[in-house]
Amino acid sequence: MTSTDPATVLLCYCSCPDAASAQAIAEALVGERLAACVNRLPAVHSTYRWQGVVTCDSEELLLIKTTAARFDALKIRLLELHPYELPELVAVPVQRGHEAYLDWVRQGGG
């Protein structure tokens, strides 16, 4: 499978400013079947340049498992829900993994 194949599993990264927004986004994406699973990693420390200033923040990182077929709808929904002006959303195609798990993701979860 290639990253343009609709069945390609994607691992998407998205940082959130706090646990409440991360949980709301995770629940919406899974509840609406745009993602099979979302892991929340608290206490991520991000350093970045924003509007000309180097900034350091504590954030929560979402690891979102979805497919290429669902990515565009997931992106639209995430941008609607996310409190940041410019949310991080990076998708990486999964090259290998436990095939039964990857099939579960392709089916949209349980």
Rank of each mutant, 00 (worst) to 15 (best):
T2N: 13
S3Y: 03
S3T: 11
T4G: 04
T4N: 12
T4V: 13
D5N: 12
D5V: 09
D5M: 11
A7Q: 14
A7D: 14
T8S: 11
V9T: 07
L10F: 07
L10M: 12
L10Y: 03
L11K: 05
L11W: 02
C12A: 15
Y13L: 14
S15T: 15
C16T: 11
D18V: 02
A19P: 07
A20K: 03
Q23I: 03
Q23L: 14
Q23D: 09
A24R: 14
I25A: 01
E27H: 14
E27A: 07
A28I: 04
L29A: 03
V30F: 04
G31V: 10
E32R: 03
E32L: 05
R33G: 08
L34P: 08
A35W: 01
A35I: 00
A36K: 01
C37K: 10
V38A: 07
N39R: 10
R40L: 09
R40I: 08
L41C: 06
L41M: 14
P42G: 01
A43Q: 08
A43L: 14
V44L: 11
V44Y: 00
V44P: 03
S46D: 03
Y48L: 07
R49L: 13
W50K: 08
W50F: 13
Q51F: 01
G52Q: 05
G52V: 08
G52K: 00
G52H: 06
G52S: 10
V53M: 05
V53S: 07
V54I: 15
T55C: 05
C56F: 01
D57K: 15
D57A: 15
S58L: 10
S58I: 15
E59F: 09
E59D: 11
E59V: 07
E59Q: 13
L62H: 08
L63W: 13
I64C: 02
K65T: 02
K65Q: 11
T66F: 00
T67K: 00
T67I: 09
A68E: 05
A68N: 12
A68H: 02
A68I: 02
A69H: 06
R70N: 13
F71N: 00
F71L: 14
F71Q: 10
F71P: 03
D72C: 09
D72L: 10
A73R: 10
A73K: 02
A73S: 07
I76P: 01
I76Q: 05
I76H: 06
I76F: 11
E80Q: 11
L81P: 00
H82M: 12
H82I: 05
H82F: 03
Y84R: 11
Y84V: 02
E85M: 00
E85G: 08
E85L: 00
L86A: 15
L86N: 11
P87C: 02
V90C: 11
V92A: 13
V92H: 13
V92S: 14
V94S: 01
V94T: 12
Q95Y: 00
Q95D: 10
R96I: 13
G97R: 08
G97D: 04
H98V: 12
E99N: 12
A100I: 09
A100C: 06
D103Y: 03
D103F: 04
W104D: 11
W104V: 07
W104G: 03
W104M: 09
V105N: 00
V105E: 07
R106T: 09
G108L: 05
G108I: 05
G109C: 11
